[in-house]
Write a protein that binds this DNA or RNA. Structure first.
Length: 705
DNA sequence: TTTAGGG
DNA sequence: CCCTAAA
């Protein structure tokens, strides 16, 4: 990898806290589905998950008559879930403080990676009945913009229609401080609770940036399609029914909004950077984070019975609410503007994770735990351990029940550019960074799945289809956070923000339910994952990313000297944070592909094709012989040919790598000579016969082709 | 988007 | 493999 352009990866990791989301309404993204919509972590989701937790906790706590401890929050029900379900079991989340944050996800292989980014990890629904899913939610920590006040979220219970409102008061939170104070909230149904009280902020406690949390997710095998999210209702005898319902509901809601959400922060310089759009989300996130972080649940305890089963949240309120919030947020955001530019490298945060398990399957729990511990020490990015769900699954499910467990220590974070004037204060810089980060997290983040360095774009593909199975190395599997590519709405429109907000939020809500899968940042592609070939283009998987990531959000402020990179000034609209698009993008998304040496068989196929097509028609060569090898582009083939010719010309002693049969090298020389002479390119005609003519030229002359 | 080459 | 100029 060349460092030059790839600042991005470095050690960037966010700590993302995840919050388990309940199966939310699954709404489909409607019409506007731009690939983009994908993803962002929505406030809603966060809220929902939060609410759930609160709910459950509250229930549990109430039962136990526990006072809300620092760590525990009582939660009412989530709006999203079916009321009864909610009650069924308390969720516990566990936050592990560990050196690094980790997220572990357990997924059945069959689960498809569909979700838009939105869905991303957070969204996985848990299916209890099937025992399949557990959901853990992750929350990105975002800190709230300095000014943020209180965010209120209302969630309605599908069943009861009981609105729950969670209010967070962060009265004056400085972004710098990023604090969420301990929240003691109790979530009461129908009542509004204030989630966070600003009393003392114990960021430290709540947020230990470093503490890694783990998130464990289990995906049910059953989840394949985008929309199939199973909401597990503990009660529901017939999960499927639930699903369908939920889906429908979901459909009703979302998309439009979603679309709006996408703001490309990065995309254009010109575009206004509007990061802040989701105050609500952030807050929520914060809440979640702070609150739940350290709730330490016991893994085993965890079984979530995800009462949540159904998700039917009425959207209206939420939207409104969110919009409102956002609106404010935006305003704030806009007010702050950045003047000079600097690029800040992304930071790594630790993740706080929660591990939630639901599971009927006991074995898993243990596994999770084990994996978690294992992971903790590890590299920031991703470590994966695999587990198999044992008997738990039913035959009914596809044979592919096996579950894959993922532990995500950190996400690779994209490069972030911000502008700040030289005269700006450090504090303002911090805020700026915070805002930027928050904005990103709030809105434009997508989760990408990288396997063997290659992004898996096809969200519909199941894990096993994508090559993610117990057998494969999960090491090569990684998750990335990427700014949404989608273009942002017109730059700087103050008006827009509100709209966006509104839209977004809804979107968010809906979205999660819809696609259970992990989402890759990129739309789909990989048609065939041929086992061998598929793996990895993308490159640097996690490992590289690993760099140390000292800081968490809270510390985002931390800018290493190296973190700040002066960027040539650009005019642009002064105030806005200017994303430098392409670079950013590239850096983020495009990492150097992993090296995948050509196998002898590939060389053979290449030689064969070139003999027939000539050396100037790489595209044809690609189509003819490598059409399904997604990782081999025509450029790659051309380059390979170039190296083959070179290799063939040098002495065998000088050759490196997997030896290529001399016979093939001879053919390479022969074909190369032939086509060079024939000026090849005559259109096509592949005349094999011709080649033979050339054959004689070969030194070795191999008659047989 | 492909080609063709340099890096 | 990447990056790009050209086409």
């Amino acid at each position: 990898m060349k460092l030059k352009k790839r600042l991005d990866y470095g050690p960037n990791g966010f700590h993302v806290t995840s919050i388990p989301k309940a199966p939310r309404s699954i709404r489909r993204r409607a019409q506007h589905k731009k690939a983009d919509e994908e993803s962002q972590i929505c406030a809603f989701e966060l809220l929902a998950s939060l609410a759930r937790k609160l709910l459950q906790e509250s229930e549990s706590s109430s039962a136990s008559s526990n006072a809300s401890g620092n760590d525990h929050a009582t939660i009412g029900k989530d709006a999203v879930k079916d009321g009864h379900h909610c009650e069924s079991k308390p969720l516990k989340t566990e936050c592990l403080d560990q050196g690094s944050s980790e997220v572990s996800v357990v997924v059945s292989e069959s689960a498809s990676l569909n979700c838009d980014q939105n869905c991303s990890l957070n969204e996985f629904p848990l299916a209890e009945d099937d025992g399949i899913l557990e959901r853990t939610s992750k929350i990105m920590d975002s800190t709230i913009g300095g000014d943020s006040k209180s965010a209120i979220c209302k969630i309605n219970n599908a069943n009861g229609n009981i609105p729950c409102k969670v209010e967070v008061e962060g009265s004056s939170l400085n972004s710098e401080e990023l604090c969420y104070n301990g929240m003691e909230d109790r979530f009461e149904q129908g009542l509004e609770t204030k989630g966070f009280e600003t009393g003392d902020l114990n960021m430290d406690k709540t947020f230990s940036s470093r503490d890694p949390t783990e998130l464990c997710m289990t995906f049910p095998a059953s989840i394949n399609s985008d929309r199939d999210v199973k909401l597990p209702s503990s009660r529901d005898p017939v999960p499927d029914a639930c699903f369908s319902r939920q889906r429908d509901v979901a459909l009703g809601g979302r998309d439009d909004d979603d679309n709006l959400i996408r703001i490309n922060k990065f995309s254009n310089k010109l575009k206004v950077y509007r990061p802040v759009t989701r105050v609500g989300d952030r807050r929520i996130k914060k809440l979640l984070n702070s609150r739940y972080w350290k709730v330490a649940p016991k893994l085993k305890d965890f079984e979530l019975s995800r009462a949540d089963g159904g998700i039917k949240p009425p959207h209206c309120k939420r939207k409104t609410y969110h919009n409102h919030e956002r609106y404010q947020h935006d305003s704030l955001f806009e007010k702050r503007k950045l003047y000079s530019r600097s690029s800040v490298e992304t930071f790594d945060g630790g993740f706080s994770s929660e591990s939630v398990t639901n599971s009927p399957e006991k074995g898993r729990k243990g596994d999770k735990r084990g994996s978690a511990s294992m992971l903790q020490g590890g590299p920031s990015l991703l470590a994966c351990g695999m587990t198999t769900s044992g008997a738990g699954h039913q035959a009914s499910l596809h044979s592919k029940d096996s579950r894959v467990k993922f532990s995500i220590k950190s996400f690779r974070v994209p490069e972030i550019f911000i502008e700040v004037s030289e005269t700006a204060t450090i504090g303002s810089l911090k805020r700026t960074v915070m805002d930027t980060v928050n904005a990103i997290l709030g809105g434009g983040m997508h989760v990408g799945v990288v396997l063997h360095g290659k992004k898996i774009r096809d969200d519909k593909r199941t894990l096993s289809q994508a090559g993610i199975s117990l057998e494969n190395n999960l090491d090569s599997l990684g998750f990335t956070l990427e700014p949404s590519t989608v273009q942002a709405p017109p730059p700087l429109c103050s008006e827009d923000p509100p709209l966006l907000l509104a839209c977004d939020t809804p979107k968010v809500l809906t979205r999660s339910p819809v696609t259970p899968a992990l989402d890759s940042g990129i739309p789909n592609d990989l048609p065939n994952p041929s086992p061998l070939t598929n793996p990895g283009e993308q490159v640097e998987t996690n490992h590289e990313a690993i760099t140390s990531n000292p800081d968490i959000f809270t510390d985002t402020t931390v800018l290493d000297s190296r973190a700040l990179v002066p960027v040539p000034a650009i005019n642009a609209e002064a105030l806005a944070v200017v994303p430098v698009n392409q670079k950013i993008r590239r850096s983020e998304i495009a990492q150097r592909r992993t090296r995948r040496p050509f196998s002898v068989s590939e060389v053979e196929a290449l030689v064969q094709a070139v003999e027939e097509l000539g050396t100037g028609r790489w595209r044809d060569v690609k189509l003819r012989s490598f059409e399904h090898a997604d990782h081999r582009t025509y450029v790659d083939l051309k380059d390979k040919w170039k190296t083959l010719v070179h290799t063939a010309r040098i002495s065998p002693q000088q050759r490196r790598g997997e030896p290529v049969p001399q016979e093939l090298l001879d053919r390479v020389l022969a074909a190369h000579a032939y086509w060079s002479q024939h000026q090849a390119k005559q259109q096509g005609k592949h005349q094999p016969g011709m080649l033979k003519i050339e054959a004689p030229e070969n030194r070795n002359g191999e008659p047989g082709i």
